[in-house]
Amino acid sequence: MFITFALITLLSALGMLLQKNIIVAGLFMVGAFFGVAGLFVLLANPVAAALQIIVYTGAIMVLVLFVIMMLNSHEEEKAQSPRAIQRWLSIAVVAALAVGAVKLVFASPGLKALAIRGAAMPEAMTLQKVGLTLFADHVLGFEVAGLLLLAAMIGAVALTKRNL
């Protein structure tokens, strides 16, 4: 199961990276988010999986696809300057980063110990546990997050409105 969802996630993300048409790339992103939601279910966390699907695919990707269709520029424009050196350099940096980090993960004895210590499946996360932690220990953070969302909403309206 893990391999299936991991492959769905990574292949969809790769499809997004290589896709020329932006709308199709957005649909690949939806696939990647569903794969991540599957991984969350395997991590005994159905709450996170539901939130992932509702917020990311239901809200954020719909918003992105809406903007893509509104702007009417579905293909990548022709490059003004090719910048071949920068492109190859960034590919090399990303590949080196990925290979180095993956090697580090497999070499780390601390991670190996943690994986063995926590191998037993914990109780599934429930909304009740999340709510208790959120409102007992992080009320201030919760309020600040609400304020941030309000500020972002007002900012988005102010930025897109032609004349206030």
């Binding site: 939130l51 990311y56 954020i60 959120l134 997050a145 941030l148 969302l149 500020a151």
Partner: peptide, 17 residues
């Protein structure tokens, strides 16, 4: 999970702006 909720909230703000 609480931190995950905050990350989602920030991601939604980032998407809107």
């Amino acid at each position: 999970m609480v931190f995950y909720l905050f990350i989602i909230a920030v991601a939604a703000c980032e998407a809107a702006v």
